[in-house]
Write a protein that binds this DNA or RNA. Structure first.
Lengths: 204, 204, 204, 204
DNA sequence: GATGAATGAGACTTCATTCAT
DNA sequence: AATGAATGAAGTCTCATTCAT
């Protein structure tokens, strides 16, 4: 029986996917369970997505886009670096808390690597722009070589993502707090080093 | 049949697993293909392993143990830090080149996270000991807080692992060379060299 | 909505059915594709037909009726046998060219056999009447036994139908020309012409 | 549990296929029912056949090969034409009685036409050779043009096949007797033409 | 009457695992 | 211990049909 609900079915399916794929992994997640979770018939999934793989990719992409949107917003907003960066971090880890199990699935299949790498590149390009804004250019990424600097950035972002993604569910909240604190420490407070105005640190 | 034959079969199965799981991922890899690759019948797999999951875990653990063994050897060997560290890095990335796709599979299932995290902890503990040996205490991990320092170490190791693991096969060699160079740069040459205040090092 | 529109929709559905069933066969043809081809919504099909099977039967019957109508017209029209017969043959094969794949579908299901056999009987009865008109009684069906003669007629008509129906699409035109030529040869020119003993006809 | 039965499983599956495909048609026949009928598990079907389509094709081809084998045997056996021909006809219609519903399915899908046409060609080539052996060259196929003669032969064989295939099950025995009688009459008794030794009929 | 999104039963197929040999 | 044919549970996906709008 057709429902009046039209546009939010896709959203509900994405949400349900996030939960199912997250809890059970791509292979173990069942399309019919996702459908039930979304409150639709199994066949309805195929009205909105080509197949299970498409559903997964769209779900993942949805998460990336959400964060990228916030990042872009921050980039286009004038203001104090530390405040903007901190807001982004808070937003990002809130998002990650909701979608973290999906990160694992993203790396599962060889044919999903492109999707992952493209989004990582996009994310890091945005972060790079944000970091460049930073009043000081010190800190752990204050390498002279821009390429190397970007490389470290990607490794660090990847490490953070998987540090959270690989956390046991029961440890998730603690893990996120730890990572968040570490990131803020590493990117915000450590440079401009405390009570030190020397830029020597920055050129390292 | 002699015991040695058995051992051979198990080893061949581990090797075949590494290749199949690596090339196709856990879900897509078929036990029968692994058996064929190892030159045994499908049923024989179950003489040496409980089930597919057990086979995967043993295969993964085998890889971890291999690297950890080398790390321990390095730790117990006296000598120049830089040389020992570089040797370990070379060894580690050679190993990673062979098993890299397995890294992705490790993160696939929630019930494998423990396995992964335990080995990561063990690895980082060893690395920490190695880094402590380092004559200087500068560099990107030269944080005062030991816990934070370990945290950054884990994130960086994770980032490196997945940076390689997420590379497209065709890009693998280039990727490994890049990461290796970056790591050596970051851990060997970049730190305020001992008793040297020259910034020449910094220009890398 | 006016009655004429309805009729138009039904006709368009029959036409679209002919094409879809023809191109893809009964099982592979999709009701929704037929609907799209006819320019209506899938649900509308069920306003004009009970179900897919009914749609198929009506489509098939439509084709039979079309030919049967022409046959009756020929039967009721006075004139030279050869001319009338040739016109019928031309008409029949033109029709067959358009609907030929449907012939295969007609034989697909046990519960469609009645439909097929009844129409075949009706067709052959008409052909028999037409052939009886023929001034001479020679030719390949010049059997003394009327029942046997009818039997041969049915077999030949069936053979012709399926010879065309089983042609690869790319071979269809050639096939139809061949069958048409053979039929004309067999039924028109070959029979010991009336009151003529000349063998010239025989060289065919 | 593995059974001792090894080679006849394939045969049992072919037999079961013949029955199921025959009774229900290709689309409606279920692989699991065929398996049950053959006394094996559903999955076992895929040990012997690629998929449902392959199972169908092999089943059909099995029938063709059976008849073709008998035809070849007859061709290689010296002896009186009429006796040999009659034996072949009897054999052929016995076979057809067992497999007749499959004939319909053979024509069902466009991608099966090749299979059908190739076997029809092979069959007619054999029949042509057999008919050439015939002491007299009269009868309904006594056309001077070999190509046309072959054409009529194919149409007639097709017509016979489908005349039987399209019979209602309850009518099958009667139908087969009728066709058999008609064929014998047409090919055996009608030529040597009654009380006529003229060869003019043969060149027609 | 028309629409077309939603339904949901059902089939094919896979493959980890078993066990008679 | 090894084999590998057989097993059978289970999941994805299709599509004829319905019915609220």
């Amino acid at each position: 029986m057709p429902r009046s609900l039209d546009k939010d079915k896709r959203t509900r399916l994405i949400t349900a996917s996030l939960e199912e794929f997250g809890e059970r992994g791509y292979a173990a997640a069942r399309v019919s369970d996702i459908a039930r979770r979304a409150g639709v018939a199994p066949g309805t999934v195929y009205t909105y997505f080509d197949d299970k793989e498409d559903l997964f990719r769209c779900t993942v992409q949805h998460g990336w886009d959400e964060f990228q949107g916030e990042l872009n917003r921050v980039l286009e907003t004038p203001g104090n670096f530390n405040q903007r960066f901190e807001a982004l971090i808070d937003y990002g880890f809130d998002l990650l808390r909701r979608v973290y199990p999906i990160v694992r699935g993203m790396a599962d299949e060889a044919n999903r690597l492109d999707l992952f790498n493209k989004n990582l590149d996009r994310l890091c390009a945005g972060l790079e722009r944000l970091l460049e804004i930073r009043p000081d250019s010190g800190g752990i990424f204050a390498t002279g070589d821009p390429a190397l600097r970007m490389y470290f950035l990607k490794i660090t972002v990847l490490g953070i993502l998987f540090k959270v993604a690989l956390a046991q569910p029961s440890e998730l909240d603690r893990e996120i707090e730890e990572v968040k604190a570490a990131v803020k420490q590493g990117f915000l407070y450590t440079h401009p080093p405390p009570h030190a105005a020397e830029g020597e640190d920055g050129r390292r």
